[in-house]
């Protein structure tokens, strides 16, 4: 930093620019100035600059320029890290992860298979249930049909029996009547012939029989 010093000379005012260190570090030694500057850069490199400026922190390379040693250390450690990761650490980690994922996937697949099997079993069971149900329905139908048939035949049988019995009864009653008629006729014929015998003294003729039958037929029946 320059300081303009104005003095009164013989001809008026003189202006002189004198270099003066800033920060009062003008008459410090380099080592003393380090106390003011907490983190100075390389001491040897800028020691001669210090002689001019008196303050080692003030001047230096532009803060945005890369420094060779940092480039070297940073780049070196990155490259070492990258090589380690790329060829040793990551593949090992990845292998474990892949193995576990494969196992999990396997488990999932197994679970899927088990689920599919269970589903198949359920469908099978349902199919079996349906066939059994159909069979049962069939059997019930068949039983119902046989039952109906049996009832029908039984009914028919019973009807036939009833008819036969009725027939038989009618025949019996007819026979009984005929027998009774015959009895009555023979009795009447007997009586008539006896009466005639007593009356005329001889065995009745055939005409008596015919006449009785005639009367019987017309009288009794009416």
């Amino acid at each position: 930093m320059l300081t303009a010093v104005v003095t009164r000379g013989a001809t008026g005012f003189d202006v002189a620019f004198v270099p003066q260190a800033d920060g009062g570090a003008g008459d410090m030694t380099y080592e003393e100035s380090l106390d003011f500057c907490e983190f100075p850069f390389e001491e040897a490199e800028f020691a001669d600059q210090y002689e001019a400026t008196g303050y080692p922190c003030e001047e230096g390379p532009s803060p945005i320029l890369p420094e060779a040693k940092e480039l070297l250390w940073g780049g070196g450690s990155f490259v070492v890290f990258l090589v380690l990761m790329r060829f040793f650490l990551y593949p090992k980690l990845r292998k474990g992860m892949d193995a576990r994922y494969a196992k999990v996937e396997d488990g999932l697949e197994q679970a899927d298979a088990a689920r599919a099997a269970a589903r198949a079993e359920v469908t099978e069971y349902e199919a079996a249930l349906a066939t059994v149900r159909a069979e049962a329905a069939e059997r019930v139908d068949a039983a119902r049909a046989t039952l109906a048939g049996e009832r029908e035949t039984r009914l028919a049988e019973v009807n036939a029996e009833i008819a036969a019995q009725r027939e038989a009864a009618m025949a019996e009653s007819r026979a009984a009547r005929e027998a009774a008629e015959a009895d009555v006729r023979s009795a009447v014929t007997d009586v008539t012939s006896k009466v005639l015998e007593l009356a005329i003294g001889r065995a009745p003729a055939e005409q008596v029989d015919a006449a009785v039958a005639d009367v019987m037929n017309s009288e009794v029946r009416s």
């Binding site: 300081t3 303009a4 104005v6 003095t7 005012f13 620019f17």
Partner: peptide, 8 residues
């Protein structure tokens, strides 16, 4: 004597 100091 210094009369005045004017900074740059």
């Amino acid at each position: 004597s210094i009369l005045a100091q004017v900074a740059e």
